[in-house]
Design a protein around this nucleic acid. Structure first.
Lengths: 203, 203
DNA sequence: TTATACATACATTCACGTATGTTTGTATAA
DNA sequence: TTATACAAACATACGTGAATGTATGTATAA
């Protein structure tokens, strides 16, 4: 039973990626074999090697997916640039956090990225990729602050770079701590107040 | 050439731990074999297995060391509890960040913990341990805020729990981002301003 | 017909845990 | 005090399993 249609092939590819996320989440990237992934996807390693070069390739693909969804969301928000940029940015932060707090797949993604992965060997290049993608995210955030200054929502002497860095660290820390210990940082309840706390003194 | 004295034995044990940190930092915990560590320490796997149960045991030991040094520092600061608690806490944060920005061994420690380790399998229990230890750290931080309220440095309606959580996330994010991309978050220069930025909101 | 989309089979490597060997500090009894 | 027994502190050797990448087989969509 082979030679599926192109559509079917794309489907098994997607199944492999979905299965990989699940296996990575449960066993960790380092301890997951391609056999594990294949089994979870209902195929053999042959199929996995047909669609992907190796484990790192699969992991890269997963990472790209998440990054894209976040970039798209940010650009969508940015597109409506008539409103108060600070409010837009604050809403964007809260929405993102609530998304992570709600969407189980997102949680699995970030848990894998933060805690179930050793960024060494083949995966070391991903750190470089992540830095580039973070720079992209960072640049967009900076844009919000710059527009806020132009809108005179922030004072002229506000430092967009500094603000972006601090916000970036704050957000990353929240996501990380939430995933590590949801009972300590209950994002569903605290996302709003936590973000407000950051933006409070800026206005 | 065997049966060293007790003192010598403790020394090789320390050598193994030092070598392990180095190997973990370069190759990642998941991709480091006990042979790698033994070779770096100038011994054989026999010595490693004599002093430690397995790789996870070594990693646990390393983690405990770092945690202890931080707890000690916090308790030392806390002991001088005559001063302004907020100022103490702020100084503590800046000092810790500068320490990490300066001490290469610390950087290797945290780089391994954040990016060179898959917390799965045998290492999964470390997440639980870390949570307990974080709770300890968290409790001490909370104490600072509570004393600040008692000192009337903070208003009575300030929420120590909330403040501790946000500070904890902020600090963790800074360390993580610094290690991932030192050029983006230059801790040596930004540690002071970043911490000030947080505490400014409180006063 | 041919390349696609896999499944199956194979060879190799590597790391792990354990078992065993060896030497010598060290405690104890005579 | 010294001889002796024991166990500490490793090194070496062994067996095993597991995962990897590739090579090959095969049925079918295009």
């Amino acid at each position: 039973m082979v030679r599926k249609t192109k559509e079917e092939a794309q489907n098994t590819r997607k199944n492999i990626l979905d299965a990989a996320l699940e296996v990575f989440y449960v066993k960790g990237v380092a301890y997951s074999s391609l056999e594990d992934i294949a089994e979870a996807a209902g195929v053999t390693r042959g199929a996995v090697y047909w669609h992907f070069k190796n484990k790192a390739d699969i992991f890269n693909e997963l990472h790209g997916e998440v990054h894209m969804s976040f970039i798209n969301r940010m650009n969508d928000t940015q597109a409506r640039n008539n409103q108060n940029a600070i409010k837009q940015l604050a809403d964007l932060c809260v929405d993102s956090l609530l998304d992570i707090a709600t969407d189980i797949k997102m949680q699995k993604f970030f848990t894998v990225f933060f805690m179930k992965c050793d960024y060494s060997g083949d995966l070391a290049t991903l750190l470089v990729t992540q830095n580039k993608q973070n720079a992209e995210t960072f640049h967009i955030i900076k844009g919000f602050f710059e527009r806020a200054i132009a809108q005179q929502v922030l004072p002229k002497d506000a430092d967009p770079h500094f603000l972006s860095v601090s916000l970036f660290c704050y957000m990353g820390g929240m996501i990380h701590e939430y995933l590590r210990n949801p009972s300590l940082v209950d994002l569903k309840k605290m996302a709003g107040p936590m973000v407000d706390f950051y933006f409070k003194k800026l206005l």
